[in-house]
């Protein structure tokens, strides 16, 4: 039973990675939010299983916190934002999805190489997944670079936070509780501020295209 559970951590890790790739290629904003919600759910499940296997009870709390924040609260907020901004059915034109995917694969290989020596030093049951966690962080980073609309960029930002939380679980069986609470608080406040921000941008530019936000350049 326990070996099965231990392997299921790897399964959830792979789900996280596949979802990160899917987000890069996804053009519909609504589907992007669904993917983000799924990623949150996979993260929460992985955290709970690590908690069960290691007997670290604070991980249960952390898993529940992840679930509440990333599967319930933030998706609700995102849905409300895209409803009010009327971008629910928006489809973004993305150039060169295959090239982006190839860059993504290079990033994954890089992340695995970077994480391999450290993962060996970790005592956590999920240490094999540290490379995946780092890969998720880098893929989200890539997504933020290639996206030109505000909402996908924000989802990339949140997905990066997912990768980091997963790294904490994979490498160290969870950061101290108070730190996790603090991070969760920052993420929540951050998304609220971003929400306010998107309305301001929309009001000013009549569009959520952040290509409008490239005027301040060095001449």
């Amino acid at each position: 039973m326990n070996t099965l559970l231990a392997q299921s951590i790897n399964l959830f890790a792979v789900v996280l990675l596949v979802l990160a790739f899917a987000m890069i290629a996804q053009r519909r904003i609504l589907t992007l939010i669904h993917l983000f919600t799924l990623q949150g759910a996979a993260l929460a499940a992985a955290t709970l299983i690590v908690g069960y296997l290691t007997g670290q009870h604070h991980l249960y709390f952390s898993g529940v916190l992840t679930f509440v924040l990333k599967v319930v609260l933030i998706p609700i907020l995102l849905h409300r934002v895209i409803d009010r901004l009327n971008v629910r059915w928006d489809v973004e034109t993305l150039f060169n999805i295959p090239t982006t995917m190839l860059i993504g694969i290079v990033l994954v290989i890089f992340a695995f190489n970077l994480a391999a020596p450290i993962a060996g030093l970790s005592a956590s049951v999920a240490r094999g997944t540290l490379g995946i966690a780092l890969a998720c962080v880098l893929l989200s980073f890539l997504m933020m670079i290639v996206r030109a609309k505000a909402v996908p960029q924000v989802i990339g930002f949140l997905s990066m936070e997912n990768g980091l939380f997963f790294a904490a679980t994979a490498a160290t069986s969870g950061m101290p509780m108070i730190v996790e609470l603090g991070i969760a608080f920052d993420v929540l406040v951050g998304i609220l501020i971003l929400g306010v921000f998107m309305f301001q941008i929309r009001e000013q530019f009549d569009s959520l295209d952040i290509r409008h936000l490239e005027k301040l350049k060095e001449d």
């Binding site: 921000f197 301001q200 409008h212 936000l213 490239e214 005027k215 301040l216």
Partner: peptide, 21 residues
């Protein structure tokens, strides 16, 4: 709420957010 200030704040948020991540 000028276009330039919105751009500056967006950059500030995203770049510092990524950095601090």
């Amino acid at each position: 709420r000028t276009p330039a200030s919105l751009e500056a704040a967006w950059k500030y948020f995203i770049l510092c957010g990524v950095g601090i991540a």
